Simulated scan of single mutants.
Amino acid sequence: MTLSISLTVNGERRDIVLDDPRVTLLDLLRERLDLTGTKKGCDRGQCGACTILVDGRRINACLALALSHDGATITTIEGVAQGDRLHPVQAAFIAHDALQCGFCTPGQIMSAIGLITEGQAGDDPERVREAMSGNLCRCGAYAGITEAVLEAQAQLAAPKTERAA
């Protein structure tokens, strides 16, 4: 039994035939679409390494069946930069040393982008820490992550004329 689904992944429509209805979005992205930036950490929805955006909202790809997202728009870490121009969250992560080993970084960045898009970041470090608590960093780069999210949030909230300066 095969099932067909259609997804828009990083702006590109993908028509996919699934041989198994139990395939997760994580496995589909990594194994079938070769988008390996999304990491498989715990495979139980506890670490956040697999965080992606589905229709603009943060989800753990390891817990999501691909079949149940037919027609969805998916953004992975590979789809956030514009050519050589980093997304403001990516640039802020670099500027604030918000990474060490880098394994959790794609999930952290996707969660931060979702958090900012959802309007939940604000300017309170505690609020950011709480909203990012589903993303674990074994290296302990949390201070830099929080600073990066706050900076990116402020930059993205600024009027376009200020950003160009």
Results as ranks from 00 to 15, higher is better:
residue 3 L to N: 04
residue 4 S to R: 14
residue 4 S to L: 04
residue 5 I to R: 02
residue 8 T to G: 01
residue 10 N to W: 01
residue 10 N to A: 04
residue 13 R to C: 01
residue 13 R to D: 15
residue 14 R to P: 01
residue 14 R to M: 06
residue 15 D to R: 13
residue 15 D to Q: 13
residue 16 I to D: 06
residue 17 V to P: 00
residue 17 V to D: 14
residue 21 P to G: 01
residue 25 L to W: 12
residue 26 L to G: 05
residue 28 L to P: 03
residue 28 L to F: 01
residue 29 L to S: 14
residue 30 R to W: 07
residue 31 E to L: 09
residue 31 E to G: 03
residue 34 D to H: 13
residue 35 L to W: 06
residue 38 T to F: 02
residue 40 K to H: 12
residue 40 K to Y: 03
residue 41 G to M: 03
residue 43 D to L: 12
residue 44 R to L: 13
residue 46 Q to M: 11
residue 47 C to F: 02
residue 48 G to C: 02
residue 48 G to N: 01
residue 50 C to S: 06
residue 50 C to T: 02
residue 51 T to L: 01
residue 51 T to M: 07
residue 52 I to R: 10
residue 52 I to V: 15
residue 63 L to F: 05
residue 63 L to P: 02
residue 65 L to D: 05
residue 66 A to F: 08
residue 67 L to S: 12
residue 67 L to A: 13
residue 69 H to M: 11
residue 70 D to L: 11
residue 71 G to C: 08
residue 71 G to E: 05
residue 72 A to E: 03
residue 73 T to H: 13
residue 75 T to H: 09
residue 76 T to I: 08
residue 78 E to M: 08
residue 78 E to A: 13
residue 79 G to R: 05
residue 80 V to G: 04
residue 80 V to M: 05
residue 82 Q to P: 00
residue 83 G to D: 11
residue 83 G to M: 14
residue 83 G to N: 09
residue 85 R to I: 11
residue 86 L to E: 09
residue 88 P to D: 12
residue 89 V to G: 05
residue 90 Q to E: 09
residue 91 A to I: 04
residue 92 A to V: 13
residue 93 F to I: 11
residue 95 A to S: 13
residue 96 H to T: 11
residue 99 L to P: 00
residue 99 L to I: 10
residue 99 L to Q: 09
residue 99 L to F: 14
residue 101 C to R: 09
residue 101 C to A: 10
residue 102 G to P: 08
residue 107 G to F: 01
residue 108 Q to Y: 00
residue 111 S to P: 03
residue 113 I to R: 10
residue 115 L to M: 14
residue 118 E to W: 00
residue 129 R to G: 00
residue 130 E to F: 12
residue 131 A to Y: 00
residue 136 L to C: 01
residue 138 R to W: 11
residue 141 A to E: 11
residue 143 A to M: 12
residue 143 A to Q: 15
residue 143 A to D: 13
residue 144 G to N: 08
residue 144 G to D: 07
residue 145 I to T: 06
residue 146 T to E: 04
residue 149 V to S: 10
residue 155 Q to D: 07
residue 157 A to R: 13
residue 158 A to L: 14
residue 164 A to S: 09
residue 164 A to Y: 04
residue 165 A to G: 15
residue 165 A to M: 15
